[in-house]
């Protein structure tokens, strides 16, 4: 094939790609930082709330899990301002969408982790005179969280990939930056190859870390049996 590769054109704008990567990481990390506590709250409400709370929370979780993330993103960016009258910038819309969306997944991870703990642990802490909150905080959650770590990290990686959707509402993430460089340089092949490589490097590094932690946890729990 007679295609002439020219990475130099692209590398001139590498700072723009790096900025895009930073923006991608910003959305991912913020969505995680907000999504995990919201997820825990949703899980606790779904598990221990009264019936009036439990049903709507369950519905919300299912709704967030079963609708396409891009539809949610468009809703928060285009539809919510009509409803509230408040303009929302792409960054905030992205954070809002992905914090909520991942909180629904984290809620299920938390719930799974909590219910997987042997009822004897609840019994023992209750018999000592602990309240339900004390049991959760001191006995149940520390054990549950340890079991949830692999699922959490897996989900975080998934989230980083999903955040590419924010380019559709003009948030300058890595994909968006790549796209604009491609349009100005007509070097789509080089630009998107480099962008893909950047995603690969970051996510591959993350999944290596996940695997390492999983292995460490496996050893720890083996020592514990």
């Amino acid at each position: 094939m007679g295609y002439e590769w020219d990475f130099l054109v692209v590398l001139r704008d590498f700072d723009l790609l790096l900025l895009g990567l930073v923006n991608t990481l910003k959305v991912t990390v913020l969505a995680l930082v907000l999504g995990v506590p919201i997820g825990l709250a949703l899980a606790l409400l779904r598990l221990y709330g009264n019936l009036v709370v439990r049903a709507p929370v369950g519905l919300l979780i299912e709704f967030l899990r079963t609708t396409p993330p891009i539809a949610q993103l468009f809703w928060f960016f285009f539809a919510l301002p009509i409803l509230t009258g408040i303009e929302i910038d792409p960054f905030r819309a992205s954070i809002l969408t992905f914090a909520l969306q991942s909180s629904a997944f984290f809620a299920e991870v938390f719930r799974g982790g909590i219910v997987s703990i042997d009822t004897g642990q609840w019994e023992a802490s209750k018999a000592l005179g602990m309240s339900r909150n004390e049991s959760l905080r001191r006995i149940i959650l520390p054990q549950a969280v340890k079991r949830m770590i692999p699922a959490f990290l897996e989900r975080a990686i998934e989230l980083m990939k999903t955040t590419t959707l924010v380019s559709t509402i003009s948030y300058a993430d890595l994909l968006y930056q790549a796209n604009s460089i491609a349009q100005s340089t007509y070097r789509s092949l080089e630009v998107f190859s480099i962008a893909a490589a950047m995603y690969f490097l970051v996510i591959f590094a993350c999944s290596m870390i996940v695997r390492y932690i999983e292995a460490r946890l496996a050893i720890a729990s083996e020592a514990a049996h």
């Binding site: 042997d118 004897g120 023992a124 802490s125 018999a127 006995i139 054990q143």
Partner: peptide, 13 residues
């Protein structure tokens, strides 16, 4: 009131 169970239920962590 103290209680001891059949399956010990120690806190494994």
């Amino acid at each position: 009131i103290g209680m001891v169970f059949q399956h010990f239920n120690l806190f494994p962590h």
